[in-house]
Structures are given as structure tokens and as C-alpha cells.
């Protein structure tokens, strides 16, 4: 299990690219995804499954919205905020979008610095990501409060189809849960990076396995996915 011995054995012939590589990878032994570690393959497949969950939520929203005979409230108006005496549509949502995109940017760089073994930069960027994420959740809480005060409930609202509130709370709530979980794991991962767990081979508390910097990338993939979902929610829920 020494690494050097294995590094020697890793002198595999250069891999082909393109379609030949595709066929070669699938017909090879050991691993089908030659560019992915176990953790990365797992998170990708998990995200695929999660994609189906969010898609089902969104298509349910589409179905109830298209089949209702009652007018659907105009999200532009519902989510407008009055700032300095002017009503600006969707302004809060736009800010939330920018925040989440920014967090994705910092996360991408954290992954990069992680692979360069730059622990401090990686951890700081991850903490920044977590901070962006937390502020996103905070703004979502503000938005929820705002709407609840205006009388929007999961079972009804003052402006039209009851499903508006149901879908809103369900979809943003489920997305917000993802963000919250992400923030928690970001904090844990940042602590591990800062402490140097991935250099010293310290074992995980639960799994008692040694971690590697690929965990930062795995974390990053999850976080970008959360951002990705928001892109769809922003377009399909708020802008429709």
C-alpha cells in the first residue's frame, strides 16, 4: 500500500481521446471513468439522481401551472422590492443569483488551490463560499418572511392560484436545504483542509478513511450543482 510502488505501476500507456477513448474506457478493466476517482464518480452519479429530483419538482410546477384555470400571480410583481421609493421587480432574486454565482466562483478557485496544496488559500476561499451560501440562505429567509407577511401560504395566496405558494415554498425550500447542507459540509471540509488532514493522512471521524484533496473537488461539484439548479429555478420560476 505504499504510494511509490503504485506510482511506478501507474505508467499506463497514454489514453486515447475522443470516441476511440470512449470505447477503450468502457471496454477496459478496473474503471470505466478513467479520469474519475471513486469519490468523483459517486458524486456525479448522485448529482444525476438529484437532477431527476429537481426536474420532477420543476415539471410538477410546470404541470400545475399550465393546467390551472386560475390566473398565476406575476412573480415580477410578487418578488418586487421597494427601494428608495421605487418598486424594482425581482431585485432581491437578482442579488441572490449574483451571490450564488460568486460563491461558485470562489469554490472553483478553492478546488484549484486545494490541488496545489495551498491550504490557507483553499480554506479561505471555501469559507468565503460558505459565507456567500449562508447569506443566500439568509436572503431566502428574508424573502420567505416577506411573502408570508403578505399572506402567501403553501395552501393559498391573495393573488391567484394556490399552487403558486405551494410550488414556491417547496422548490425554494428544497433548494435552500441543499444550500444549507452544502454550507455545513463546506465548513467541515475547510477545517480539514486548514488542519492539513489531507497531507497528514488523518482519518475521518466517521469513515476512518484517509482523505485526499479530491474531497475538495467533490465538495465543489456539489456546490456548483446547487448553483446550477438555481439557474434553472431563476429562469423557470421567477422569469416565467
Amino acid at each position: 500500500m505504499t504510494e511509490s510502488a503504485l506510482t511506478d505501476s501507474l505508467e499506463a500507456p497514454p489514453r486515447q481521446g475522443g470516441w476511440h477513448g470512449f470505447a477503450a474506457d468502457w471496454s477496459s478493466d478496473q474503471r470505466a471513468f478513467k479520469s474519475a476517482t471513486w469519490g468523483k464518480a459517486m458524486i456525479w452519479i448522485f448529482l444525476l439522481s438529484d437532477t431527476f429530483i429537481f426536474s420532477c419538482f420543476l415539471l410538477s410546477y410546470m404541470t400545475v401551472r399550465m393546467s390551472t384555470t386560475v390566473p398565476w400571480p406575476d412573480p415580477g410583481k410578487v418578488f418586487a422590492l421597494t427601494i428608495a421609493g421605487r418598486e424594482i421587480p425581482l431585485i432581491l432574486i437578482a442579488i441572490m443569483t449574483f451571490i450564488l454565482i460568486s460563491s461558485s466562483g470562489t469554490m472553483a478557485m478553492a478546488v484549484n488551490f486545494g490541488y496545489r496544496h495551498d491550504r490557507v488559500k483553499s480554506a479561505v476561499l471555501m469559507l468565503a463560499t460558505a459565507a456567500f451560501g449562508a447569506s443566500f440562505v439568509g436572503m431566502q429567509a428574508f424573502e420567505w418572511t416577506h411573502l408570508i407577511l403578505e399572506g402567501v401560504r403553501p395552501w393559498g395566496n391573495p393573488w391567484g392560484a394556490a399552487q403558486f405558494g405551494s410550488c414556491f415554498f417547496l422548490i425554494t425550500g428544497f433548494h435552500g436545504t441543499h444550500v444549507t447542507i452544502g454550507v455545513i459540509f463546506l465548513l467541515i471540509t475547510a477545517r480539514k483542509v486548514l488542519r492539513g488532514d489531507f497531507e497528514s493522512g488523518r482519518r475521518g471521524f466517521f469513515t476512518s478513511r484517509k482523505g485526499r484533496y479530491e474531497i475538495v473537488e467533490t465538495m465543489g461539484l456539489y456546490w456548483h450543482f446547487v448553483d446550477l439548479v438555481w439557474v434553472f429555478i431563476f429562469a423557470l420560476f421567477y422569469l416565467w
Binding site: 489514453r15 481521446g17 475522443g18 470516441w19 477513448g21 470512449f22 474506457d25 468502457w26 470505466a32 471513468f33 478513467k34 479520469s35 474519475a36 464518480a41 456525479w44 452519479i45 448529482l47 444525476l48 461558485s104 466562483g105 469554490m107 472553483a108 473537488e217 465543489g220 461539484l221 456548483h224 450543482f225 448553483d227 446550477l228 439557474v231 434553472f232 431563476f234 429562469a235 423557470l236
Partner: peptide, 28 residues
């Protein structure tokens, strides 16, 4: 259009899909 382009950028660059091998790309 903007949605797809944004999603594409996130998946391709931030999630490094553009540099993965075809086997993984198509599987996902």
C-alpha cells in the same frame, strides 16, 4: 438561451466536465 448557456458554463468549466473523458460525459 441564457439559462442553457449559464448551465453549460457551470457544468463545463466550474464542474470540469469539459476536461473529463467522454465515457463520464456521456454517462452523466
Amino acid at each position: 438561451l441564457f439559462m442553457i448557456v449559464k448551465a453549460g458554463l457551470i457544468v463545463a468549466i466550474f464542474m470540469h466536465m469539459a476536461w473529463e473523458r467522454l465515457a463520464l460525459m456521456y454517462a452523466i
